[in-house]
Design a protein around this nucleic acid. Sequence first.
DNA 1: TCACAATACCTCGTGTTACGATGTATTCCG
DNA 2: CGGAATACATCGTAACACGAGGTATTGTGA
Lengths: 106, 106
Amino acid sequence: MDIQLKRGLLDICVLAAIKDGDSYGYKIIRDMKPYIALSESTLYTILKRLEMADMLTVRTTEHDGRLRKYYHITKKGLQRIENFKREWNEILSIYRFVTKEDAKNG
Amino acid sequence: MDIQLKRGLLDICVLAAIKDGDSYGYKIIRDMKPYIALSESTLYTILKRLEMADMLTVRTTEHDGRLRKYYHITKKGLQRIENFKREWNEILSIYRFVTKEDAKNG
DNA sequence: TCACAATACCTCGTGTTACGATGTATTCCG
DNA sequence: CGGAATACATCGTAACACGAGGTATTGTGA
């Protein structure tokens, strides 16, 4: 997918990936892969950004001797998803603008 | 609209705004306004970028003593729009991922 | 005539951001 | 013992939207 198009969707997707249950970095990447691919460096940047914005909270645990940071979505994070749903109508309107045939011909 | 979400749509919208007939900067902004707002500095950056990418050509004319630069979409520009239409399915898939209810509940 | 909006173009600096490259450390498999 | 997978993190870079500011002309109203 076009990188610029991804920009607006990545944050939302990460929030969506944890909204039905806490998750951690590596798993988030795996879960998102069928829909949108992203690198580890990108994800950890996003997770830090979302944490700073109070859209998620972090809980560090140990799993099989390896560090694991579980991310939990907050009220603000859920609101961000709701806001995206509202913006979806604008996106649809743009899609129609882009795909509409020449008014002179139809 | 969220600025990151705009990023992926602006280029496409500018191309869509000239695809049915050559247009110029000021008019493009007016035509796009109902769908997506953008500043002049943003538009001229985009127009230059699209010209460099051979997605449009420029023709300078004089209109009522004022300079006017008409932009014309190229084959490559039209292909960019077609590519967006193909990417639309991916966007829909992401939308469903974001809006789907918790699998455990539905 | 003077001020100001509208038309129409352009440049510069800044902050945000995705990502490749790179690094650390552990477990698992052969 | 080596390499893949798991799991985290930082740094530098390039792309980009936009506000602020600039140039120049044509209306418009007091």
